[in-house]
Computed example of a mutant assay.
Amino acid sequence: MKILSWNIRGMNSCHKRDIVRNLARDHRMDIFLIQETKMSKERVEKIKFFKFCESQGSSSNGASGGAVTLWNSHFIQGVPFCHDDNHIATLFKHIRDGFSWILFNIYVPNNKVSRRKFWARVSSFCCNHPNAPWLVIGDFNTPLQETDKFGGSQIQLDSKQDLADFINDQCLIDLDLTKASFTWSNHRIGAELIQVRLDQALISIDWLQRYSCSLNSMIKVGSDHYPISLMVEPKGGQRRKFPFRFEKMWLSHPSQYNCVKEWSIQIDGITLFHIAKKMRFVKKMVKKME
């Protein structure tokens, strides 16, 4: 299964809708999440793209917000749950294996008060559905780590902390981008260049137990945001993974100290999240050593 998410920064023009159609045709995703359509719910749900037979939209608030979730009903069944101008929640069910899960297509507000109310609404919804595996994908409007931003002013601590608290409270996992570090750029040159990872994907532990997930950044077109794609594959179809074993020869490798540096990095969140994140970094370093 392939899920694509993109902050389009307005979909009123024919040119933007043509870009969406081309993305849908060329990348053949099963679910397409679009943020900041800047259109009404009724209007955006009338637009049909490629093989997407079903859609759920939310209206914009003036010239900002608005979203739409599109899916291929021949592969997956979708039931709309709830929506507002900053998120859409949809219950999906795979036709092939019957697995059900909840997907949030989100555009997080920039305003401090609105942002905290938003996270409170999403958290309340999740607490009311504790047994459902779920994904949160979209434009989070803030980076989670200092390394998620290059250039410009420092990250606002309150917005970063609000996101970290949500992740910790709901025991979610932040998926790393595998082919890029940032999803937004102001396209300036030199000292004026700013790049940030604003578009992200969070998954519940239930997902990791069942699926292997890979998050990638795509080529930017028609917006200052890069589309991101989430590839989801059943773990049963993968080759068997062998248990980790320490190799004594690694102690003589010239890059061994880089692993120590990776373990000593500062990460926000609960202890379990610290360990999981650091193990992921060290694993990458060990693979390079091998």
Rank of each mutant, 00 (worst) to 15 (best):
F166P: 00
V108F: 05
G222Y: 14
V68K: 03
R43S: 13
N216C: 14
L70F: 15
C213P: 01
I155E: 04
N216L: 14
W6N: 01
G152K: 03
A67D: 03
H187P: 03
L202Q: 02
I194C: 12
K277L: 07
Q77D: 15
P234Q: 04
I88E: 01
D268F: 11
G66V: 11
H15V: 12
R245I: 06
S59T: 06
A201K: 00
D97R: 03
E247N: 13
N186Y: 14
G269M: 08
H129L: 04
D169A: 08
K38P: 10
F104R: 01
D176L: 02
S55L: 03
K160S: 10
S153N: 10
L175I: 02
M231G: 05
E42N: 13
I205Y: 10
R210I: 06
N216T: 11
I19D: 14
A201R: 04
P80H: 13
C53G: 15
S214L: 10
C53F: 15
T69Q: 01
V68W: 11
P254V: 08
V68Y: 06
I267Q: 06
N216Y: 14
C14T: 14
S58V: 02
K16Y: 09
F92Y: 09
R116A: 05
S153L: 13
Q209D: 05
S124L: 05
V232F: 04
R96M: 07
G190N: 02
E192T: 11
S123W: 01
S181K: 12
N111E: 13
C126F: 09
E247P: 08
E262T: 07
K2L: 04
C126Q: 02
N131D: 11
Q156Y: 12
M289E: 00
K277W: 08
N128P: 04
W250A: 09
S60Q: 07
E233D: 09
W134F: 12
I189P: 05
